[in-house]
Design a protein around this nucleic acid. Sequence first.
DNA 1: AATGAATGAGAATTCATTCAT
DNA 2: AATGAATGAATTCTCATTCAT
Lengths: 215, 215, 215, 215
Amino acid sequence: MSKSSKTRKTSRRSLPREVRREQLILATIKCIEKNGLSGTTMAQVTREAGLSLGIANLHFESKDKLLIETLKYITEEYNLGLAAIMEDDRYPTTSSRIEAVLKFDFSPAVIRKDKLAVWVAFWGEARARPTYQRICLRSDLSAEDATRKLFKAAIEEGRYKNQDAAILASGYTAMIDGLWLDLLLCPAHLTKKKARKVARNYLANALPDHIPQEP
Amino acid sequence: MSKSSKTRKTSRRSLPREVRREQLILATIKCIEKNGLSGTTMAQVTREAGLSLGIANLHFESKDKLLIETLKYITEEYNLGLAAIMEDDRYPTTSSRIEAVLKFDFSPAVIRKDKLAVWVAFWGEARARPTYQRICLRSDLSAEDATRKLFKAAIEEGRYKNQDAAILASGYTAMIDGLWLDLLLCPAHLTKKKARKVARNYLANALPDHIPQEP
Amino acid sequence: MSKSSKTRKTSRRSLPREVRREQLILATIKCIEKNGLSGTTMAQVTREAGLSLGIANLHFESKDKLLIETLKYITEEYNLGLAAIMEDDRYPTTSSRIEAVLKFDFSPAVIRKDKLAVWVAFWGEARARPTYQRICLRSDLSAEDATRKLFKAAIEEGRYKNQDAAILASGYTAMIDGLWLDLLLCPAHLTKKKARKVARNYLANALPDHIPQEP
Amino acid sequence: MSKSSKTRKTSRRSLPREVRREQLILATIKCIEKNGLSGTTMAQVTREAGLSLGIANLHFESKDKLLIETLKYITEEYNLGLAAIMEDDRYPTTSSRIEAVLKFDFSPAVIRKDKLAVWVAFWGEARARPTYQRICLRSDLSAEDATRKLFKAAIEEGRYKNQDAAILASGYTAMIDGLWLDLLLCPAHLTKKKARKVARNYLANALPDHIPQEP
DNA sequence: AATGAATGAGAATTCATTCAT
DNA sequence: AATGAATGAATTCTCATTCAT
């Protein structure tokens, strides 16, 4: 309080509501990564954000709301990224669009440790917290919906026998979730590169004319 | 289990101890299912077990130890089941053994909601708790190791080009984890039957001569 | 009120200041009615007044000062009303003046629910807050003093044996306080009309020649 | 913790539930007397009781419940005292029973400062707290009911013209409440003796054949 | 070995007050 | 003079752990 006068510069400055909220959400993500969901306290979050204890309740009403907004932030970010690929006209073929999804799902922005940690942390509490479950569910279904459409197009184009778009999409979603989890649990054993290869192999086996095995 | 093996007398006396411990672990599983990991209290666990509050600390020293023993209980149960299949002489072919694993991974004993909830709950806290992570990791690697051996044998038998046992095993493990998660998060959308079909489809695409598509 | 009295100019400028203060005091009364003394917050008061949060401290220094001013406002309003009756030349007889006091004590302006709620709220905290106690005490003594003079005159005029003006005044004050309280606590059981009748009956029994029983 | 070994004697000792509850209620009464209702904290109450902070929630669930039980304790104590007089066969006459009530209402046990402070503190918050109001109301009506029966009997016996038992009872209840309040607010001005005289004078004026003026 | 009342550290939340704009 | 975002002390409540019985 008395020691620094430089760092204080922004401290008391009144910032736009949205800026503060994002600042706090980002601090929450950092804390969840470090301490888990149950180990995350308001004091930690606000300290991480360089702000005072009371500010989180000022902007989010309660810890619960802050956590929910954090989960929404993470899921929306992911789903918007996926939606952008689905709507992007620059992908001329189904194949290239699937490749783009595959690339996106293992892009640095998506598989950042802190964000993966947040996904998994909320999964862990989702069963006991209907609100978490609802948000996770919505996100999951939305992602699965997108890939199912892609796989359906591919199956029709490739006349793959024995492939079912719904089954493939469920499998892809599950595998992505599982790989994210394993990236977090076994970082020494599963590299990002290998994880991507695993997912690609899944699609290459199912849709060989669209997705070649990794070179 | 470790202390006594001399006489029936001590054995009789130590039996209640193990019974109490299991009783508490089972109560813990129920509580985690209902309230999540962070929502589980010693009072709940002991009430669920129909015992007194103090008894948990008497048998497990601390809540942390109880939770760790619960996680070990769940992971050991699963890994022992898998190991039993791997060592069972009654499976004459690689194919039949893989089928057995597949069946096991979606058997009622394994995909009971309460146990799945425990897996996911601990995954969620694993990153922040080295002990949890270590146990989850060990379990994951053990399972992956088992399937890798199976897939290796299958690949050699079937001369599948382009298949890599390690990649396949990582993918299988990830997909199982992901499907378990989705069974918990989206019970209305993913049935047990469909989940099994998804996993089978994965293997059928990779090892078609060993695992036929579901009839 | 204290600073300016020189010119119209400053007087005009100080007017808004007094207006603001009264605006805040009236908002405080409303809040105390709705939420009690302990449930009244600065945020509520300023919102009720349609002003900004900071303004209360600007005009009253602290919450405590605002509350004290609110109590003074209520007690002064009452005591001024009583004093006006005592000094009003238009009451030719002791009897008519007592009747006027009786009428005043149950007039709509005095027994408004919001104001009664403020009285009772401050009584409740008076014991723990010397400043509140002092103000309540002063108001009580002032009112009792007024009625004692009236009763003394009546006793002398009527030669009532066994009546003591001091005792009668204490009783009257206590009964008014008690009736106000009961109007607040038991509105379904004690109507305003009945309360007035109760008070009149008290005086009619003591000073029958001056105060007739209600017709 | 380490300093004393004598005072600790009872501290950890497990006491019957009801004993602890009363101990805490009595401590709450003391705290309300000293600090008012809003100034009373759980820390104060438990310190006053010589117990640890957590114990109040253990026995009362919440502060709110503790306060409500305290109010009930006070009101029940009073109403039971009154009921005992009403049912006591040893009062041969209406007159003696009214005298007993009068004596009771100013007995040392009833007009103890700490208990009066509790009454008034809860009155102050009753309007904002329906539960408080309900309890105060019930107590008030019960007391008024008792006195109305007495006054009705007296009026019939004495053939008092112009007296109405209901009006008299409302007035008596209001006056008692008001006198208790004034004993608290103006202890230097209103002695217990004078207060009793005021109440007696009220009854003596209304029911002269039953209640003589104070000698 | 078993019990559960008691403890007290730790967390969320509230809100009077401050102060840069 | 007015605003309202920001602060942080104070308070309630929770719950793992202890320990007398």
